[in-house]
Design a protein around this nucleic acid. Structure first.
Length: 110
DNA sequence: AGGGTGACGATCA
DNA sequence: ATGATCGCCACCC
């Protein structure tokens, strides 16, 4: 459902980026990267600029590609040639798989 | 209600 | 690095 994907896209914080595949996975549609692109097409008010292709490459073309880059740079995102430095900006907020740094001593048991 | 369609992704040569 | 290809799968008409 596109709302899940939109939700994932909106979850990307400013100054960070994600990928079509990454968003798809976060939304529970692993493998359906193209679906993310489709949602971006229709979605309004989405931070579309923060969604990139694999490796941090802008998959857009023409003026749109330039605009995306400008927008990202305006957020402080750094580029490595034609691609975004994913090591610095790849958004990996929620871990769909890896469990995490749950430092909370959960005592709630039950 | 069914099929083509992508702002994709990983792979092989 | 390039490019051709299939797979993915809900969305749109």
């Amino acid at each position: 459902m596109r709302l899940n994907i939109e939700r994932a896209i909106r979850s990307i914080p400013r100054g960070k980026v994600s990928t079509y595949g990454g968003i798809a996975k976060l939304a529970g549609y692993a493998g359906a990267a193209r679906l993310v692109a489709r949602v971006l097409r229709r979605g309004y008010g989405l931070p579309w600029q923060r969604v990139l292709g694999a490796g941090g490459e802008i998959k857009l073309t023409g003026d749109s590609a330039i605009e995306q880059r400008l927008r990202l740079e305006a957020e402080g995102v750094r580029f490595r040639g034609r691609k975004v430095d994913m090591k610095l900006h790849e958004f990996r907020g929620e871990r769909p798989k890896t469990r995490s740094p749950r430092r909370n001593p959960s005592k709630k048991r039950g």
